[in-house]
Amino acid sequence: MNNILSIIKKEINHYFASFVAYVVLFVFLFVGGYYFYIYVFEVRDAARVMPFFLNFMGFLAFLLTPFITMRLFSEEKKTGTIELLLTSPITETQIILGKFFGALLLFLIYTSFTLYYLIILFIFGRPDIGPIITGYIGFILLESAYIAIGILLSLTTKNQIVSGILTLIALLVFWIIGWIGNYFGRPMQDILQYLSFLKHFEDFTKGIIDSKHVIFYLTVIGFNLFLSVRLLESRETVK
């Protein structure tokens, strides 16, 4: 546990020491803030602004996650520090979990800035608190799934850009797979739509918590982290 915590701490320090974390946060807040402003201005219904906004945030996070996850292992591999890490008494599972929670914590810090929007809504209107809570729960699950995929793909290459692009493509596929599903008949349609990140996220933003969606995200997170551990364990494949 201490090992995991120390990795998380190291990761967070590392993020905020680099300029990338600030640029990503800037884009997140600038684009997010603009859309929040548009939704408030257009919708004018305090109960419906956050569902719209959280949906958009899910989309924005998918574009930004690769910038964070692409360097997680690729960089360590390039600089050779991965060998240090692997020869230390820290287990592979601890490394993966540390990196995962480190990136997640970073995104939670990013997300915490959006609480400012909530304050505005509560001052100017009377939002419905239920869908906001479920929406944030859904967003955290969605973001965790993004990061888990990013970690796995970051392990496969030492080139950050390749890692980032692979992650972007993978997330894009999971994002649009539901629409692709529309062009198929059943049961292919059902399967593809089940794999869609968007479809599972939708209910959360409306104020619904369904075990089906929670289990879907936990499965994606768990499986990707499991694969990452396996990949890291077989060092031969990770030169």
Binding site: D128, G130, P131, I133, T134, Y194, K206, G207, I208, I209, D210, S211, K212, I215, F216
Partner: peptide, 11 residues
């Protein structure tokens, strides 16, 4: 899980 266990509405 897709056959549903639990679903709650917080609106």
């Amino acid at each position: 899980a897709s056959k549903r266990f639990f679903r709650t509405d917080l609106t």
